[in-house]
Computed example of a mutant assay.
Amino acid sequence: MNKLMFFTAEERLSRHNDLASILPLGFRAGSARFEVNNLMHTTTRINHPINIWYQSQVLLRVIDAFVYVRFGKKDSMPQHAGDVNKWRRWANPLAQTVALVEGVDPAPILLSKTDIQVRIKEYGAYIVTSSWMTFTGLTDDQIQMSDILLDNMRLTLDTLTRDVASGTASQTTASNGTPTDTFINKQDLDTIVTNLLIQNTRMIKGQVNAGPNQGTSPIRAAFIGICHVGQRTRLSNVSGFKHVANYAKPGEIMPDEFGTTDDIRWLLTNNATRATATTGYENLIFGEEFYGTVKIKGNSADAPLIFHGKNQVNSPLERFTTLGWLQNFAAEILNDNFGHKLITTI
């Protein structure tokens, strides 16, 4: 049987010193505290040769919704036919309500027409990249640059269309809003819809019939309304507003659509025009062939996106490349009676 062992103070000190001799380097006997050893390799002494990791999945790049160019009448013209496009609209003669006299021909009637012309122009932009950047940089950067330029082209064409459509002479300022007269409201919108229908304006979207899902409802045939994202709350407060979540058929929802107010289906974009920089909004409501867009088929360049390598630019030492876009385009109001702009505040 093992006997209990008792040690004198001197013996306990001796055993403590022996323990210290077998502890790992950097620990002090009799405590759990760790001490940094001056002979240790740390990142202060030997720093990492590369201490940055680049995420190739780039951050989200936001851009305005391109909505205006979707709805205009889209036409094109052939190459080598000039740079002016002409549309023609015939007027309807009045009803012939006078009875004919037996054996007598009536006087001939005259038809009338309206011509609308627009001159097509070119638009474009490009960037210059040094050959050294291309030589030393990541190839992913070149892809991002191409995407940015293509979006810039789309934004340019949409903005050109917006400026023409929003320049309509048919406009009013809201006057029946609650609690402020100039808020967007059902009464002013109904008046605009009625005036468009009086002009025989055709609606752009057909009716969406009721579906089986609970809480959904049919959607009327409708004109298109485009307004600024800042109008979102006021628009949802209009009497009778239905959010797209309540549409009977989700497949009928247009990109960037927010909802409907009776005979108008609304799309939101930050690219919508503003009456003032801070409070005023211009809400555009229109039907078919209110405005049109036209371009010449093909392009004066080989493609919309144009790349010139370092051996194609005017650089004796091949010091840079270029990348850009080029498009010919024009937009024009075709019938001012088919659209209206309601000016509101928030």
Rank of each mutant, 00 (worst) to 15 (best):
F6L: 13
R15S: 06
G30I: 11
A32F: 08
F34M: 08
T44R: 15
N47Q: 13
Q55W: 14
S56D: 15
L60T: 15
L60Q: 10
I63R: 13
A65S: 11
Y68H: 10
A81E: 15
R88K: 15
R89C: 04
W90T: 12
N92Y: 11
L94Y: 08
L94P: 09
A95G: 04
A95K: 14
Q96L: 14
Q96N: 12
A99N: 07
L100W: 12
V104M: 01
V104K: 13
D115R: 13
I120A: 00
Y123L: 07
Y123H: 15
G124L: 14
S130H: 02
W132R: 09
T136I: 15
G137I: 08
G137K: 07
D141A: 12
I143W: 00
Q144G: 02
M145F: 09
S146K: 12
I148S: 08
L149H: 05
L149E: 01
N152G: 15
L155D: 06
L157N: 00
T161F: 01
V164R: 01
A165S: 08
S166K: 07
G167A: 01
A169Q: 10
T172V: 10
P179D: 09
D181W: 01
D188G: 01
D190L: 14
R202H: 04
I204G: 03
V208H: 01
P212W: 04
R220V: 00
V238H: 06
G240N: 06
Y247P: 00
K249T: 14
P255I: 05
D256C: 03
E257H: 06
E257M: 09
T261F: 01
I264G: 02
L268E: 02
N271V: 00
A275D: 12
T279P: 02
G280R: 10
F286R: 02
G287T: 03
Y291L: 08
Y291W: 07
N299G: 09
S300D: 14
L305R: 08
I306F: 03
F307Y: 15
G309Q: 15
E318P: 02
E318D: 04
T322M: 12
W325Y: 12
L326T: 14
L326R: 15
N328G: 03
A331M: 12
E332L: 12
L334P: 04
N337T: 10
F338N: 13
G339C: 03
H340D: 06
L342K: 01
I346F: 12
I346V: 10
I346Q: 10
